[in-house]
Amino acid sequence: MRRFLISSVLLIALTSIIYSCQDAGKIKQDVYYVNGRDLYIKHCQNCHGANGEGLGILAPPLTDTLFLKMNKQKLACFIKNGIKDTIVVNGQKYEGTMPAFPELYDIDIAQLLVYISNSFGNKQGMYTPEQVSGDLKGCK
């Protein structure tokens, strides 16, 4: 009986260690997501809306998963430097400019991107600050 108890406790401990290891990445992503939501409310929601729905043809929606995927390397540049060119989102042309947010750090941008690309019907996983700083070097 005693042996059974000890072995079952050990087994539970072992599984929980493995389980938490596997989930460390997920936990980090969740932390980024929650922080990203605060940043989104502060910097983005005015124009893009609480549900990423955009505002008329003034501000595009953030629900175009394909756009986010195709422009993955440019997203950090869009936030940091703003947008002056015409872009096409959900088949609609958007001609206005998006303001730049030079005050945001790489980690802020990473958290924002995790929030946006995993909300509003998007599901694109993690962005790291390293990815962001790499992407920012490639900005036009």
Binding site: N46, C47, G49, L55, G56, L58, A59, P99
Partner: peptide
Amino acid sequence: CSTICPTMHRNMK
């Protein structure tokens, strides 16, 4: 205006 105006006009719309 990128701060309060879009929200105001979203609501007004």
